[in-house]
Nucleic acid binder design. Sequence first.
DNA 1: AAAAAGACAGACAGACCTGTCTATTTACAT
DNA 2: ATGTAAATAGACAGGTCTGTCTGTCTTTTT
Lengths: 190, 190
Amino acid sequence: MTRNLREHILQTASGLFYSQGIKATGIDTIVKASGVAKMSLYKYFPSKDDLVVAHLQRSKEVMLSFINCGIAGEDKTAEQKLLAVFDVFAEILANPEFRGCPFINASAEFADAPAPVRQAVANFSEALHKLLADLALQAGIADAQQLARQLSMLITGAVVSKQIEKQPDTMRTAYIAAKILIEQGAKTRI
Amino acid sequence: MTRNLREHILQTASGLFYSQGIKATGIDTIVKASGVAKMSLYKYFPSKDDLVVAHLQRSKEVMLSFINCGIAGEDKTAEQKLLAVFDVFAEILANPEFRGCPFINASAEFADAPAPVRQAVANFSEALHKLLADLALQAGIADAQQLARQLSMLITGAVVSKQIEKQPDTMRTAYIAAKILIEQGAKTRI
DNA sequence: AAAAAGACAGACAGACCTGTCTATTTACAT
DNA sequence: ATGTAAATAGACAGGTCTGTCTGTCTTTTT
């Protein structure tokens, strides 16, 4: 039961943090929503910051496994997988519960963030970059790092744009741009 | 004196909101930093939300005039002006006091934002898009709207990436990608 | 110079938030 | 069955925040 309880608290908190914002979600709200005693929460997460870090860690894992799942397939070329990443994000953005990127939001909420929070935020960014860079490398693109940075900027920009405006085809625009950048990069193969 | 006082309060608040975050900046902090009486602040800005909206409005004007200033020049072609926008942002990102985009940050801080705040955030985004779309149109690019959306995503992505990671040449990467997208767009002239 | 308006200084109410503490109940293991 | 560990319920302290209120001082106007 102990593992379940921790997981249950984290799951509840994660949902609230994402949908309402971290600072806007009080401990009491999490306690009430999860139907757990406050002391239990503080047993597994000694402070709210610990809970926030765990939430970001969890979000990172969820996101990465979601992406990896979406680009899987032996029949896909590396270039197709790069584009498939954009399809995954298109799906995420289409979800009516989409409320922006949890990492970007956290980064903005914690201007003078405690180090662990900032670190957790940077982690996902790096992981996504590495994933893209590996694919670009597999595609034989000469400056794989550069292309990966460009694509990750496009994704970031699309996610934020979608959050601010309401435009429905945001990710489609990013997809088209990505295709152009990938093709251009592919001209300078190793 | 009355206009000056209002302006002085707004200027102080704007600086604090940007550097420390909006929710993290209390009214008392603004009062102390501006050396003004609390009652004076509440006279000109009946609530903190009013002050936040004024701050975003002000930031929008500052940013737009900064951009317009950076791309001015009779000798520049429309395409050069598009790229000059990226140079302006490179300058902004190079500033050691850079702390992300005030609008994106506000959007993330106010998950369930009051309508006026969300509106003020969307305003800048639209203004930037319009500026880019007009330049793309002047450059004779067929799908000017599409290119403008792509470029504004790149800018947004670069700004956020810079905020999260510490990479020094973020805007350079965006610039190169922009060049490719503009050239590609220019192939399908009207 | 006197009167009126504007600005300052800071106390205060009411709400909310984090984190702690105690007392009670539930679940389990021996 | 009984003792131990875990979970619950909720009061509480200490702090912070917004927004209000009251007096005092300064400036301007007449």
